[in-house]
């Protein structure tokens, strides 16, 4: 199971353990500092109890670095370490397709959109899909549904839609909306 997905940039102070690692090192983090933190404690009151024989199993930190961003997945023994590396790649590719050449600011200003994309890949800690094409289609369908809903609710709105003014992903931006976005710096990279 995937216990956490973290994204942070190079200036993240909390994550110095990872960001201090040169690129040549492996993508798995085993830090003595984390030993106590990563020991898997089964949730109290969990109906099924802990998985048999994995009491005290250690969670693993798998990460990948893309430009200024670090993508960190915390996973348990049910996931394949190399498989998770591939999954991170899938996630980043999906972000890239949705945001068209994704960068750090996209993720900062559209954190809700990042959540929506992630929700097409992972749901409740389990992997939903690993096929980039399928994921892209699902993301677009969801975005389209939100936009239509926004458009019917606000017939006069100029923005690209969504409550937070989330950027269009289906190429339906109005020129004016695109312009305002430019002016306010949303799209500035």
């Amino acid at each position: 199971m995937i216990h956490a997905v973290l994204i942070f940039n190079t200036s993240g102070k909390i994550f110095s353990l990872i960001s201090a690692r040169p690129a040549s090192l492996c993508n798995f983090l085993d830090a003595p500092e984390l030993e106590g933190f990563l020991v898997h404690k089964p949730e109290a009151g969990l109906g099924l109890g802990g998985p048999a024989g994995v009491e005290g199993e250690k969670l693993r930190v798998v990460y990948r670095n893309y430009a200024t961003l670090y993508f960190v997945f915390v996973v348990d023994g049910a996931e394949s370490e190399l498989g998770i590396l591939d999954l991170i790649q899938v996630f980043v590719e999906s972000l890239d397709r949705a945001f068209e050449n994704v960068c750090e600011l996209d993720l900062v200003f559209h954190f809700d959109e990042v959540h929506h994309i992630l929700s097409e890949i992972i749901q409740g800690g389990l992997v939903l899909d690993t096929n980039v094409e399928d994921i892209e289609i699902a993301v677009q369908n969801a975005a389209k549904a939100r936009k239509e809903s926004f458009a019917t609710a606000n017939p006069l709105a100029l923005g690209a839609g969504g409550v937070g003014g989330s950027r269009g992903t289906g190429g339906l931006q109005t020129p004016l909306g695109w312009l305002t976005g430019k002016l306010t710096g949303v799209n500035t990279r």
Binding site: M1, L48, P51, A52, A78, L126, V127, L128, D129, D134
Partner: peptide, 19 residues
């Protein structure tokens, strides 16, 4: 095939509890 893969993921987790 996506549904099958997702089902396998679920079974893989479940089997850890009661193989």
């Amino acid at each position: 095939p996506g549904v099958v893969a997702a089902t396998i993921n679920v079974l893989c987790e479940l089997a850890r509890y009661n193989p």
